[in-house]
Amino acid sequence: MTRSHRTDLEAPHGTTAEPAGIDPRGPRVGAGITAAMLAVVVLLGPTTPALVLLAVVALSFLPGAVWGPRATWQGWLFRVLVRPRLGRPEHLEDPRPPRFAQLVGLVVTGVGVVLGLAGVLAAVPWAAGVAFLAAALNATVGLCLGCELYVIGRRLRRARA
């Protein structure tokens, strides 16, 4: 008799509806790179160079929001430079929550860029600050706020259905 029951949770990987798992360290390394860029945006303050750099960060989120974090240049750097130096990951992770987190990053930084282009340069370091908080938490302690939002959102959608 087994004493551990999974009542009806999806199998971790391999079933038809389930996308292939990703190395969970990839998004964290990517978040570290992004956090460093966002720190520079904050340092630059409400200026045009800050707006340009924030636009670069926002554009970097775009492929991640569409295809997942592995499609970003940060994900590419992880695969090429970091992953060969690491052992195999202990386990893989569902790519959907981190992909949603990339979308959240795109929206937050995108709002800063749009406001900055509209002349509200003060919004640039603020948007960068919010995004920095999320990216740095993900990189340092593995708290992915966007992923948590995705899990909560799925549950709410299920509750309403």
């Binding site: 904050v42 340092l43 370091p125 938490l137 340092t140 302690v141 708290l143």
Partner: peptide, 23 residues
Amino acid sequence: MSAQWPALVALVVLTVVVALVWR
């Protein structure tokens, strides 16, 4: 430009506090 060091320091402190509380 005058680098916004106080803003960045405040942000890093906030991040560290949130990270520690969460962990």
